[in-house]
C-alpha cells in the first residue's frame, strides 16, 4: 500500500490495475503465523520484543503479528507501535512527502528487540529512514525486519529477516499488500 501511494502521487501517478493475485487472505495469514513463529524461534521467546508497523502498509500486518504472538504465548502482551517515516525520508523536496498517519511508539526502545514490519520491501529507502527514526526513540538492542513481500530492486544494503514471500518483479510493476491478499498489477498512466 505504502509503495503504491508514493507511485500514484502526481506527476507520475496513475491508476492501479490488478493483474494477478499472488497470495490470498488465507496465505497472508499463514505467512504471518510463520513469521511470528520465526520471531519466537530466533529470539528464544518474546522477552523485550516490540513490534513496530510502518505507516501505512505495515500497520495492519504489525497488529496481526502482535495478535498471533499473543495467542501463541497464552495472551502474552506484545507491545505494538506505529511509525511514520515521512520526516526521515531522503526524497523530501524531490517528491511530495507528507506524513500519512500517526507515530505511536510504546515507551522507550532502549534495550528492546524491535521487529520492524512493512508490507513491501523494494528499494530499501523506507527502511533506511525507519532505522534513523527508531534511533530517536532509544537504542534498541537489535532491530529485525519483517516484510510480507520482498520484490527486489534494492538501492541500499538492506535485507529482511522475515519474509512472507519473495516475489521477483519488474521495476515498474506494483505490489498491493493488505490482509486480504497480495496482488501484482500495473499503474496505468492517465
Amino acid at each position: 500500500m505504502a509503495e503504491r501511494e508514493r507511485k500514484l502521487t502526481p506527476p507520475r501517478g496513475g491508476a492501479f490495475v490488478p493483474r494477478v493475485q499472488v497470495l490470498s487472505a488465507a496465505d497472508v495469514h499463514r505467512a504471518l503465523t510463520r513469521i511470528a513463529h520465526e520471531i519466537v524461534e530466533r529470539n528464544r521467546g518474546l522477552e523485550d520484543v516490540v513490534v513496530v508497523g510502518l505507516q501505512t502498509g505495515g500497520v495492519p500486518l504489525a497488529y496481526r503479528i502482535g495478535q498471533i504472538l499473543g495467542e501463541m504465548h497464552d495472551g502474552a502482551h506484545v507491545p505494538v507501535g506505529t511509525l511514520d517515516v515521512a520526516f526521515y525520508r531522503d526524497d523530501i523536496g524531490i517528491r511530495p512527502v507528507l506524513p500519512e498517519a500517526s507515530t505511536e511508539i510504546p515507551g522507550d526502545l532502549a534495550g528492546t528487540v524491535v521487529i520492524l514490519v512493512d508490507d513491501v520491501l523494494f528499494t530499501g529507502r523506507t527502511i533506511r529512514a525507519a532505522l534513523n527514526a527508531l534511533s530517536d526513540f532509544g537504542r534498541a538492542r537489535s532491530v529485525q525486519l519483517a516484510v510480507m513481500v520482498d520484490r527486489g530492486h534494492r538501492e541500499l544494503p538492506i535485507r529482511p529477516d522475515y519474509v512472507g514471500k519473495n516475489l521477483p518483479t519488474r521495476f515498474d510493476e506494483q505490489v498491493d499488500v493488505s490482509l486480504d491478499g497480495v496482488v501484482l498489477g500495473d499503474v496505468v498512466p492517465r
Binding site: E5, R6, P10, P11, G13, A15, F16, L98, E100
Partner: peptide, 25 residues
C-alpha cells in the same frame, strides 16, 4: 492544496480524484 490532494488521493480511491490532481499540479 495540490500537495494535500496528492497525499489524500493516494490513500485509496485514486481514480476519482485524478482530474483535480492534474489541475492542481
Amino acid at each position: 492544496g495540490a500537495a494535500e490532494r496528492s497525499a489524500r488521493s493516494s490513500r485509496a480511491d485514486v481514480a476519482s480524484r485524478q482530474d483535480s490532481d492534474d489541475g492542481g499540479s
